[in-house]
Nucleic acid binder design. Structure first.
Length: 378
RNA sequence: GGGGGUGUGGCAGAGUGGUCUAAUGCACCAGACUGUAAAUCUGGCGGGCUUGCCCUUCGGUGGUUCAAAUCCAUCCGCCCCCA
């Protein structure tokens, strides 16, 4: 029997660093490259679990910091784990709370041992340490869990980035010790997170030290925090060759359709992003012919589907004109339909990419995708 | 018939002599969103261009004044009360 989170490399592209693979978990195998929708509070915002399953999503995220605050880990534990609690019953991954050091920077303090947060819900104080994050993530019970790290902001000075990266290394070692204390690793996999901002030498050091610690998989964190696209792509190019071939590589918090192609091309296996759901709630829709904002006046009388190539409930059942009406009328149905559509889009995109890798035609597929995606006439 | 009130930008609604192209909200037109403090946020919203100015706006018309959305006259519309 395979170790949870173990990765099987099935095929390498002859054209680039892209790879086709399979990730094992006790709740099912995951075909990679994969896009993972984000469900911070144990729910992918606006999308009922049964619809999410129909989208073809293989694995979803949740956030340990948010679930720890509410409803609390005790309740999730009693429910039988997060996958039972939300009735997804398929692979899940939890983030450690490290991203909240970045996103909640106004109400937290970083210390040597961890980070003190002031709850955004009621103002109460909570100290998150690597050990605490491991305990919380064990209680939540996701199949893949992440080291507690500091996601540094952009821009960060070299000095800041270096200290931050070194702190994340120290915390990673503590996470590992805590995680392997019991037999949790039979059910869960722990991934390490590489930091170092946009500084190549820091990224290399982080990658070397992290791989020396020997985690089940590796993530590249601290990207898509405002840095130029070239920086993000260069960071992957610097880090990826240093990662072992027989383990999964996860680019955290990414991304846009462009990012998925560029990431896969550079050897990334896993992505997660709030974009499909958040942008969906804000009216932005991804289609094979490009992005559009369904709220815009041009769609008021457009009685065609969002994307004729899409099989999602929004495209099968409704027109742009109707969705435009739902958004303008603030009818809550649009939250669900647009979020779901965007998830379908990302999932389909990754399926397209995997198929291209099977045929070893990555660049042909990429070119075809963007020819249509950037040629939308409005 | 008598008395009182009121008319402001697409709508609602401030402003009652200069600092008014006129607050604010809504509507409208766009844009942003990347390990979710986000069904959120930002910008625009009379016209013109040389982007700093010019022209045109507060029911209509006429007046007072150096100056009027603001004061006066008159006309038109709407609302309320009493008969």
């Amino acid at each position: 029997m395979s170790e949870c989170g173990s990765y099987t490399l099935l095929k390498k592209s002859s054209q680039c660093r892209a790879r086709l693979g399979r990730l094992y978990t006790a709740r099912g195998n995951i075909d990679t490259p994969v896009f993972m929708p984000v469900g911070t509070q144990g729910t992918v915002k606006g999308v009922a679990t049964e619809y999410l399953k129909e989208s073809g999503a293989q694995i979803i995220l949740a956030n340990s910091y948010h679930l720890y605050l509410r409803p609390g880990t005790e309740i999730i534990k009693r429910a039988g784990g997060i996958q039972e609690f939300n009735s997804w019953r398929k692979p899940m991954l939890t983030d450690s709370g490290g991203f909240q050091i970045f996103s909640l920077n106004e109400i937290r303090k970083i210390k040597e041992d961890g980070a003190q947060f002031q709850s955004h819900i009621d103002g109460s104080r909570h100290f998150f340490t690597p050990e605490k994050s491991m305990q919380v993530q064990k209680d939540i019970g996701a199949d893949i869990i992440m080291c507690f790290d500091e996601c540094a902001p952009y821009p960060a000075s070299y000095e800041y980035a270096k200290n931050s990266m070194e702190l994340s290394l120290k915390w990673a070692a503590k996470c590992k010790d805590e995680f392997y204390k019991d037999d949790a690793r039979l059910k869960q996999a722990l991934f390490g997170i590489i930091q170092g901002s946009v500084y190549d030498d820091l990224r290399k050091i982080s990658a070397q030290k992290m791989t020396e610690m020997d985690f089940t998989g590796y993530a590249i964190g601290g990207v898509s925090v405002g840095e130029p696209r070239e920086d993000k792509e260069r960071v992957i190019e610097v880090v990826e060759p240093l990662l072992p071939e027989n383990k999964a590589r996860y680019l955290m918090g990414v991304g846009m359709p462009e990012d998925l192609w560029e990431g896969v091309q550079r050897g990334i296996d896993m992505f997660d992003c709030v974009i499909p759901t958040r942008n969906g709630r804000n009216g932005q829709v991804f289609t094979s012919l490009g992005k559009l904002n369904i709220r815009n006046a041009e769609f008021r009388q457009d009685f065609t589907p969002l994307d004729p190539q899409c099989a999602c409930p929004a495209c099968k059942g409704y027109t742009k004109a109707y969705l435009n009406h739902l958004v303008r009328a603030q009818e809550s149905l649009y939250l669900s339909l647009l979020s779901l559509h965007n998830i379908y889009f990302m999932i389909n995109l990754m399926e397209k990419i995997r198929k291209a890798l099977e045929n070893d035609s990555f660049f042909e597929a990429k070119e075809e995708f963007f020819r249509k995606y950037y040629n939308r006439k409005s």
